[in-house]
Amino acid sequence: MQKYLDDIVRGLFRENPTFRMLIGMCPPLAVTTSAVSGLIMGLATTAVLICSSTLISVLKSLIPKQVRIPVFIVIIATFVTMIDLILAALVPDVHKVLGLFVPLIVVNCLILGRAEAFASRMPVSRSITDALGMGLGFTWALTFIGCIRELLGAGTLFGATIMGESFVNWQIMQLPPGAFFTMGLIVFTLNLIGNHRARNVQKAARKQIQVVGKEG
């Protein structure tokens, strides 16, 4: 049980694909002009990730090593196309916003990366929890970037007006540079916190050594 929980938490924070591993960077930069599009994009990617990881993990002993990458890609592409059609049929408004970026989930290296690094070596159950963790980590990252860009760029959050009348929209945040600024500053902040923690841990360890040394 602990293992499964670990898989999920790992994807959410410690190995967050967007903020820590910096893989699959196209959607976080391209479709995060609003919180909603970030959220939907994240969920669509999560769905593809879970489906493909599961199927690949099930089929892993049947797929010859030499052709595994093409097979993975075909499987991923199939699920992406299905998700694309489902979105177009059920939530056309969202589909319109995401546009070209849904088909591009195929080339999101997060998905192929998890297939190759995890699903093709691990049991089905762990592959699912891993995909779930990674997918949700990806989703919150995209939503978070979307929130910041939407708040500063349009004064709204999930479409609801947050900023007062006098707020002036920072147009740059809705444009591509805004994505890079936001992304960079978030990674910076997370690293800052990470380094700070690591230093504290080190300090604590050093203190312990000193104490032990004195006692000894």
Partner: peptide
């Protein structure tokens, strides 16, 4: 440049 792109009208 940041200001110029973000707040052209101002």
């Amino acid at each position: 440049v940041f200001l110029g792109v973000a707040f052209p009208t101002q």
